[in-house]
Amino acid sequence: MTTPDQYNERPSVAPHTGTTATRDFILQATGITKSFGGVHALKGASMTMRRGEITALIGDNGAGKSTMVRCLSGIHRPDSGEILLDGKPVTFENPNAAIQQGIETVQQNLALVEDLTVWQNFFLGREKTHGFGPFRTLDRKLMKQTAADLLKNLAVNVPPVTSKVRRLSGGQRQAVAIARAAGWGSQIVIMDEPTAALGVQETARVEGVIETLRESGVAVLLISHNFDQVMRLSDHVWVMRAGMAVAERRSAETSGDELVALITGAKAA
């Protein structure tokens, strides 16, 4: 490399890329390492997410994407490294801790219960109740209304909130899972391959939901193998290879071919 590339320096600390000021980063992860026995899944990876943007995380299988995401959502605890959320250092003991700090994750399996209704799934584990003691009853009206409103805000095209999730299509289920993750005043929503199992039309609908989410000011971290989708949706791309975040690009300034080259290592970062 002859000219210093403002995006391509391998960062040793959370990078301040381009003209973005530090305060514009909602999340900065620096030097994250994580090993499982002798396997070094993350070897000091650093990445950032900006407010109100969709950040894509790409890389080949085994590059460390999932481990990175699991560190951010509290499933794994990094062996070393620092995570700054809104500029403040945070550690997550468990997924609930991450959720309380405003980081929601849409699991790949969606974590929906098919035999329950849409609204029941929406509030599963954090139901609204009224009354007290053992006779505290579910506030069904409030929960149905809230779930319906949230789905409407995201322009999600789903059957009534009283229908069972079993009757929903794959895309509708994905949309419900995304709306649920977005519905708790969260700052960051992490999505692992949200459209992997979907057809063309359903993918388009789910992408619409993700864009609506960005417009509402939520930062989205998108893990995807689909470069077209990454180019379509994301504002910023991080490329991982062999446990490191090796490159970042503004989506507008890169191409699918370049991303492939970065992933495979054909092009040095």
């Binding site: 699991q107 399996n109 974590a111 929906l112 219960v113 599963l124 954090r126």
Partner: peptide, 9 residues
Amino acid sequence: GNEESAVAN
């Protein structure tokens, strides 16, 4: 209905 999902929530 789905123990894994319930636990995840």
